[in-house]
Nucleic acid binder design. Structure first.
Length: 648
RNA sequence: GCCGGUUUAGCUCAGCAGGUAGAGCAGCUGAUUUGUAAUCAGAAGGUCGCGGGUUCGAUUCCUGCAACCGGCACCA
């Protein structure tokens, strides 16, 4: 038998007969290690202790102390144990697939009856019983015919289809958790008893299409979360509760920012407080864009079908458009229009008005463009995914040579805005040419390189997403990370030579001939609605002072102070601060509590002492105690804080 | 759009094996003039999501629809 050489993490290596298992390797190092071993990593690949090793490489033995492999195994074995429990409880259930995901796993089942929340408790109990049996996990490689025959025999059509989808030549591996068998890539733990029976929870039931395809049957998915121990599970559940507390829909109601109602699904009724955030953010964006060389335009909401036919949207996206028809009873002739789902075709109309010269390029045309899209009902989510929204949209008309410098300029622009809005952690995704595309390979080469070079020139790395670009051009996407680690794709820059062609945009070049410009579609926030939702959740509603809808409440302690309270409010308002008086006949404790719950960042309490000394007592949100300072000083300090970051 | 769930006062929720409903908070009225996260009292507040059916009688049972929630699919 041939020998292989395995290198350990400490740099030493040892020879073993080919075909040795990682379990035997661990045993050869130390019996105690073999006892604690759960899996191994071979040249970075996570492998099962039972698998034979046929070639030399770098090996390390994993124990429960190794976070990533331990959690992967635990979650994956839980998926199998759950599927076993479900089939023990309901033998007619068909199994499909059950992968590991963030914090846990899911498994999709086919069953005529829907699972109920009560069923989850039964499944959890059955899983604990299975774990208590401490049965061994074993594995074998089967040939295709045997595997297909086995699953046909057992009446598991989904598994048969899965096998058909696995490429010829790839080994089909079977795993047994006790007597329960599943087709699985592995690796797994060695014994079901290694699972922490007190560190998992089945969280919810949901529908999910087989193979993620909406034309295939809908299965029932059960989600679970699992950790190495009870404390980690508890910490996770606490984190979920914290996340629920910052839900923008809840805070939107509590802070009286907006509401939505049945008569206008997917559209927002902004209340004074919420609209304050919106306009403050929009004013800021408008100043930033002006300073960066954009011109602002505004274009129609209701646009004839003819333009959408010319742009190509009528053919491809009609299902998602609000169609507005005017019939013969109202007008002499019938017209068919659509609410604009995007601004680009309208911007080309502005560009096309009058003859443009190469000297006009790059032309950066911005619009806070209100758009309406008939989003599928199931996609709507608070103010994050709506049917009526306003983009911070702009189109840069330029030559191909200008793409790189315009992209670099845009990345710097966007970086400054994200920093101002409190997002320091974000990344860039570069999506390149898809299979089905227009344009020559040479032009794709040039444009993709321009985007990549622009990122580097601006000082940012990017991740490559091959094949993910649009059919007409590559794009950059800017993904920011919020305070609790969630990612949000907000900014985008899309290179588009197609729409100028379709809508016949042109400019006169230095050679006196007409040329097509390139369009760069770009946005920083995406939409104001969604971005405000992100801002609310990122800050738990405690927005930075300059964005807070109610910045200061001046609260009287005794009614004899009311006159001075109004004087203080007037001084603050004169300095441009959003201040309100609270002279209700209530205790100061009551007022402090109420305005703290409402997340007002500063409360000024006014009693007779302040009246006599012409001072204010300043209390900051989430801080104990207060600070006494002269009125003029308080106004100056707060005015400073209320100044938007671009005006400081 | 698909699967499952939910819909009762402004908000959070209880209740009803079929006889038209309750609490806390908010709001209103009165008393209290109060020093940094809830002062006390009183009165009031609901076509039980919308439509149809069964029934002597429906908030409760059946059925259709809508919106919302959790996912899936979608996001030009």
């Amino acid at each position: 038998m041939s020998q292989i050489s395995l290198t350990f993490p400490d740099g030493n290596s040892r020879d073993y007969p080919a075909g040795i298992t990682a379990a035997a390797v661990a045993e050869s190092i130390a019996p105690s290690l073999a006892k604690r071993a759960i899996s191994a990593s071979l040249d970075g690949r996570h492998i099962d202790l039972q698998w034979p090793i046929d070639a030399s490489g770098a090996i390390s033995i994993n124990t429960m102390k190794d976070d990533a492999p331990a959690l992967e195994l635990i979650r994956h074995d839980f998926a199998h144990v759950m599927a076993r429990a479900v089939q023990e409880l309901w033998p007619d259930v068909k199994v499909t697939i059950g992968p590991v995901r963030d914090f846990g796993w899911f498994y999709d089942f086919d069953r005529a009856e829907p699972f109920t929340p009560e069923d989850l408790g039964r499944v959890e109990a059955a899983m604990k019983q299975i774990i208590a049996l401490r049965e061994p996990v074993r594995t074998e490689v089967w040939d295709r015919d045997r595997a297909v025959a086995y699953y046909k025999d057992r009446g598991e059509p989904f598994k048969v289809e899965l096998i058909d989808r696995i490429p010829e030549g790839e080994p089909l591996r079977m795993y047994w958790h006790g007597d329960w068998q599943d087709l699985c890539r592995g690796p797994h733990l060695q014994n079901v008893g290694q699972l922490p029976a007190d560190a998992f929870k089945l969280t919810h039931i949901a529908g999910a299409y087989w193979l993620g395809d909406s034309t295939r049957p809908m299965l029932q998915r059960i989600y679970g979360v699992a950790f190495r121990n009870r404390d980690e599970l508890k910490a996770h559940l606490t984190m979920l509760e914290e996340a629920a507390k910052r839900d923008h829909r809840k805070l939107g109601r509590e802070m009286e920012l907006f509401h939505m109602q049945e008569e206008a699904p997917g559209q927002i009724f902004w209340h004074p407080n919420g609209w304050n955030i919106y306009t403050t953010l929009q004013d800021y964006m408008r100043r930033k864009q002006r300073a960066d060389g954009y011109v602002e335009v505004n274009t129609p909401q209701v646009v004839s079908r003819k333009l959408w036919e010319a742009s190509g949207h009528w053919d491809n996206y009609q299902e998602n458009m609000f169609i507005v028809e005017v019939d013969e009873e109202h007008a002499k002739t019938k017209t068919v229009n659509a609410l604009k789902p995007m601004n680009c075709p309208c911007h080309v109309q502005v560009f096309n008005h009058g003859l443009k010269s190469y000297r006009d390029l790059p032309l950066r045309m911005a619009e806070f463009g209100s758009c309406n899209r008939y989003e599928p009902s199931g996609a709507l989510h608070g103010i994050m995914r709506v049917r009526g929204f306003t983009q911070d949209d702009a189109h840069i008309f330029c030559t191909e040579d200008q793409i790189e410098s315009e992209t670099k300029k845009f990345i710097e622009f966007l970086a400054g805005i994200y920093a101002d809005l409190g997002f320091t952690e974000w990344r860039i995704k570069l999506s390149t040419r898809p299979e089905k595309r227009i344009g020559s390979d040479e032009s794709w080469d040039r444009v993709e390189a321009a985007l990549g070079n622009a990122c580097k020139a601006a000082g940012y790395e990017y991740e490559l997403f091959p094949g993910e670009g649009a059919f007409y051009g590559p794009k950059l996407e800017f993904v920011l990370r919020d305070a609790i680690g969630r990612d949000w794709q907000c900014g985008t820059l899309q290179v588009d030579p197609n729409l100028p062609e379709r809508l016949d945009a042109e400019y006169v070049g230095p050679d006196g001939a007409k040329h097509r410009p390139i369009m760069l579609h770009r946005a920083v926030l995406g939409s104001f609605e969604r971005f405000i939702g992100i801002l609310i959740e990122n800050s738990s509603g405690k927005l930075p002072f300059w964005l807070a809808p109610r910045q200061v409440v001046v609260a009287s302690i005794v009614s004899d102070a009311d006159g001075y309270v109004h004087e203080v409010v007037d001084s603050l308002r004169a300095a441009g601060i959003r201040a309100e008086a609270d002279t209700r006949n209530e205790k100061i404790n009551y007022k402090v509590r109420e305005h703290s719950v409402a997340k007002v960042p500063a409360i000024l309490a006014i009693g007779m002492k302040e009246v006599e000394d012409r001072t204010v007592s300043l209390r900051r949100l989430d801080q104990q105690g207060s600070r006494l300072l002269p009125l003029a000083e308080a106004v100056a300090t707060l005015k400073d804080e209320a100044t938007p970051p671009d005006l400081r």
